[in-house]
């Protein structure tokens, strides 16, 4: 997996994001599992420390997601909602979308489908 860290200042990887002072984004490529969750958390915590209210995770290039990674997304979503913010899952790939539907996590997250 790779995480492309994209701040609101360099928003080319999430081109339809609405750049704002409070929006951070990242795009995850390949596998998203226990091994990579720490990197995601590190970037997310940096965003939170900068006062972000909206964090966008582009999942269009993810080909596998495991329960540890899902738990990391849930944790991030809850943390932001406690601070009146939100975590947005953008364009989940088929592999991710199926997992989200099977687990009913699609009902918990805010999901932006492909335009």
């Amino acid at each position: 997996m790779q995480i492309e860290t994209v701040s609101h200042r360099q928003d080319d990887a999430v081109d339809d994001a609405t750049p704002s002072e409070e929006t951070w984004a990242c795009r995850i490529l390949g596998r998203f599992d226990a091994h990579e969750s720490e990197q995601f958390r590190s970037y997310f915590e940096e965003a939170v420390s900068q006062g972000t209210k909206t964090f966008i995770v582009d999942l269009s290039e993810v080909d596998f997601v495991d329960s540890t990674a899902l738990a990391e997304l849930v944790r991030a979503m809850k943390q932001l909602r406690q601070e009146a913010g939100n975590l947005i899952l953008r364009r989940p790939s088929n592999a991710v979308r199926i997992i989200l539907e099977l687990t009913k996590l699609d009902q918990a997250f805010t999901i932006e489908a492909a335009a």
Partner: peptide, 11 residues
């Protein structure tokens, strides 16, 4: 048998 709700601990 599909899920009825999200995993326990999410909401």
């Amino acid at each position: 048998v599909l899920a009825d709700i999200a995993p326990v601990g999410v909401l």
